[in-house]
Amino acid sequence: MDVGGFLGLVERARGGDRRALGRILTFLEDLSVSNAWMVEYLASNSSGKAQVIGITGIPGAGKSSLISRLIKAFRDKGYRVAVIAIDPTSPLSSGALLGDRLRMQDHATDPGVFIRSVTTAGFEGGLSLAALAMIEAFDALGYDKIIVETVGVGQDETTVMDAADTIIVVTMPGAGDDVQALKAGVLEIGDIYVVNKSDKPEASKTYEYMSFVAEKGDIGREGAWRPLVVKTSAVLGMGIRDLVEAVDKHLEYLVGSGDKAARTAKRRKLLIKLLAKKIVLDTLKKVYEEHDQSVGEVAKTLKGFYEESLELVRLAGRKLIEGS
């Protein structure tokens, strides 16, 4: 798509055209050297004011259900809310079945809410790249709260959580063993810990355990924020006010301490790093595809193994630079 066409889409999206925003996000899922300017344009138009809230935790903990509750609470306060639901491609098949949306469908028709699922990535870092680019788009288009859901396993998901302003780790009673099984690093990143499904009897035990985890996480972290632990029940709608209060408090802390600006800068640095990686991989792939042909041609020169292989390296290097 040419620049004029894209700017037209952005203009339409600004005016509330959701079809246009949906199309923009699709371009951002497939960034390459030829359309990297799209995310650049969006980032230069985003305020960095949106609060990016990462929500992670084992499958079934109730993340999507909680997000649906959060959407409602944020909407009541007049915020515009975007959700990026990350669901990695099933390792068992090349496709994906995306069900996070199912729990949030009540909000689908609310003009102040936009929900997008992300799944396929061609390379490690691809999911993060797509999510980070989408964050810039939502911010540029005036969304106040950008919620990112991940199941918190895998490098890509840790990366994207790292890029959030506020990290919420969700667990549930009886998940103790699974919780232990999660990488300790993932667990200790929380700014807020949520014990969801508190309507269940074993919840207080889990609460105690999470308080311990929060304290442990606290030792390792920089800054003055003390992680909070909140009990919720997404089905009953209990504890949601406490959770929203904790999220607000964390934003206040971020803004007051200057950490907010630092996190935005960190997020953009990560975006650039991943975009560069994508461009290098794309270019390498192209060079590699042309490599066979070069081998045939260089071999004809009969300069000997050493000279011929050096010549191939030189050719590849030239193509890498020309191709980018």
């Binding site: 098949s93 496709g95 079945l97 995306l98």
Partner: peptide
């Protein structure tokens, strides 16, 4: 999904909107 599609499933009792 098994055939390689990305499937978004919205669940039961959806309205056209």
């Amino acid at each position: 999904r098994d055939a390689g599609f990305e499937v978004i499933y919205t669940g039961l009792r959806q309205t056209v909107d």
